[in-house]
Design a binder for these strands. Sequence first.
DNA 1: CTTATAATTAAACAAATGCTTAATTGTTGA
DNA 2: TCAACAATTAAGCATTTGTTTAATTATAAG
Lengths: 124, 124
Amino acid sequence: MGYPSLPHDHGEAFEKEMGAMPPLESFGTLASIFKELGDESRLRIFWLLCHCEECVINISSMVGMTSPAVSHHLRQLKSGGLITGMRRGKEVYYKAVDTQKARLLHSMIEGMMEIECPWEGPVR
Amino acid sequence: MGYPSLPHDHGEAFEKEMGAMPPLESFGTLASIFKELGDESRLRIFWLLCHCEECVINISSMVGMTSPAVSHHLRQLKSGGLITGMRRGKEVYYKAVDTQKARLLHSMIEGMMEIECPWEGPVR
DNA sequence: CTTATAATTAAACAAATGCTTAATTGTTGA
DNA sequence: TCAACAATTAAGCATTTGTTTAATTATAAG
């Protein structure tokens, strides 16, 4: 009771089946987090910055992109709260932040790599 | 040796810092997985189908979208290997598949909800 | 102050994405 | 076989997105 009835009743109570649905807002928040990593270039950059701290030019070199393009992605990752940048001299060094969110995403990436990407890792 | 040298040498050896980078292909694979969940509507639908099995009309009703729109997302989630659909009579019932990949994504969603979405859950 | 290098910002554009409406296919029951 | 309902597909469109090139800002060194 209190629940909107569905067009079709297949016998199962809505709330019993799945509990309450999180609010729309939560899905929006989460989707935008996944969207951050839903781009190959940005995912590589984030992965990179989980493993080292580097300046824009070196990042550009590592991922084979122009620095404006990299800068663009860095800004998104930064505003998404996944990385930070600090200027030292002429260069700005970026690295992943150390938060629950960033750690969870990183471990998620590594875990999914193991499951979905048949790659043996660096030569031993 | 054997490594492309970076434009700037900041003293740290490339390989020591971060190990070998997974191949580009792996990042592409992973990015497309994250892209699946990088849309609010699709994320809701996937979450829903992790918690119950439903026909298209009911899904449409639950997420407040037209059935063509839902069908569109269902096809993507299906081709992404996250859900399956089976026809029973006039209806096609969809639910999340039971694979490592889908389970990891689901637990990731729930974990991230806890961290990032200040919501107390269903009334007890 | 001037020059060189690093990084960001802006403008422009092609490509991809998600939704709408309309048409089509599939299934059931009269 | 026909009518009703469920689902998918197709076409069209507006929006978003990622990249490029060019211009601008920031810092260090001569």
